[in-house]
Amino acid sequence: MSIALPASFSYSLPSSRVFIIGLAGGADSGKEAFCRVLIEQLQKSQVVDSSKALLLHLHDFYKELTDEDRVRVATGLYNFDHPDAFDWDLLAEVMDEINEGRLTKVPKFDFATKRRTMEVRPKDAEYPSVVLFEGIFVLYSQRIRERLNMKLFVDVDDDARLVNRVSRKVAESNPDSVDHILTEYVRFVKPAFDDFIQPSKKWADIIIPRGIENVPAIELITAHTADLLGRATSTRPSRMNSSSSSTVLQEMTGEASSVSSSACASPRPHSKASIAHSEGSRSSMNSSPVPRRDVLGGSTDSLFKPVPE
């Protein structure tokens, strides 16, 4: 059975046959988990095998920190949730290498040491046919958006993301105090979402409410990607609530039976046109309760510096 999509869904594959999917969303909205489930479903539907799916993280593209930056990190004043914290030139270079079929190194950021290294890909490694790229600012820069074949946005409620953040932070080996987590959230995370991440949602081809809980969205995206890669109808993924349901999905959302019942009541993912009427009711999300801070620039209430295109 063919899935009909709006006329606006007219993607084209690059000559290298590498299909790059960009996934944006607020911090702790489950972007990485969503990508891993999507990769698993693409493998199960025989769109790609395990050696030809690559997952990249925006947080590995943080800039090299200067001595002054490290002082700010130590005092909790360095803003990792600002576009200026990322190396956009390196990101564009890596994406071009992917499209041209000559990717040899990928960056890796160590959060313990706050240092970035370059990892060399094995020479005998299969070249990816599908690349998933996730991060809070994936849809922020125009020159990065132009390198994506499909643009997704995971839309998860603010309160749910804050709960996820607190749960994750307190479970770490060296946990932060709840007071520190909330201070960091109010100072950096919430303003970043209001000023940069939420506005970038308008560039998404598909907006996915509830993230990984939205099983129909995972099905639709998997099937549509299979279509774009020229796979036959027989390789389409089976229903996610069947006996071959995603093991990762079950781990993230509970027993398969509960997933099945929630999927039946879940709305389909929205296109840009379908959410236009709801933007007015959500306008309160676009203003931050705290002053803007550009800690990287050392000033408050400053206008953000757009990334040079």
Rank of each mutant, 00 (worst) to 15 (best):
M1P: 11
S2C: 13
L5D: 12
A7L: 10
S10D: 15
Y11V: 15
S12D: 11
S15N: 08
R17N: 14
F19V: 02
A24T: 10
G26H: 01
G30T: 07
K31H: 00
F34Q: 06
F34S: 09
R36V: 09
L38R: 04
I39E: 11
I39D: 09
E40D: 13
Q41Y: 03
Q43V: 12
Q43R: 12
K44F: 01
Q46K: 13
V48F: 00
D49Q: 07
D49K: 07
S50N: 11
S51R: 13
K52W: 03
A53P: 02
L55Q: 09
L56Q: 07
H59P: 00
H59E: 15
D60E: 11
Y62F: 06
K63T: 06
E68W: 04
R72C: 14
V73W: 00
A74T: 06
L77M: 12
N79T: 07
F80S: 03
D81W: 03
H82F: 05
P83L: 05
F86V: 02
W88Q: 02
D89R: 06
L90R: 04
L90D: 05
L91M: 04
A92L: 05
A92H: 06
I98T: 09
L103S: 08
V106K: 09
K114F: 13
R116D: 07
R116M: 05
T117D: 14
T117H: 08
E119K: 15
D124K: 13
E126W: 06
E126K: 14
L132T: 11
G135Y: 00
G135R: 04
G135E: 04
I136G: 12
I136H: 09
F137L: 10
F137S: 08
L139N: 08
R147L: 14
L148E: 02
L148G: 02
K151C: 04
L152H: 04
V154A: 12
D155A: 08
V156S: 01
V156M: 05
D157M: 10
R161Y: 00
L162K: 05
N164T: 06
S167L: 11
K169F: 03
V170F: 07
A171E: 04
E172F: 03
V178H: 01
I181K: 02
E184Q: 10
R187W: 01
F188L: 05
V189F: 00
K190I: 02
A192D: 02
F193T: 01
F196A: 08
I197P: 01
Q198P: 02
P199N: 08
K202Q: 13
W203Y: 14
I206P: 04
R210Q: 06
N214T: 05
N214F: 04
A223N: 09
R231Q: 14
A232K: 03
T235V: 08
R236M: 06
M240L: 14
S246V: 00
S246A: 00
S246R: 03
T247R: 13
T247N: 12
L249Y: 01
M252A: 09
A256C: 09
S261C: 08
S261L: 12
A263E: 05
A263K: 07
P267E: 11
R268P: 03
G280E: 10
G280I: 06
R282D: 10
M285V: 03
N286I: 03
N286K: 12
P289Y: 06
D294S: 15
D301L: 10
D301W: 04
K305D: 05
P306R: 07
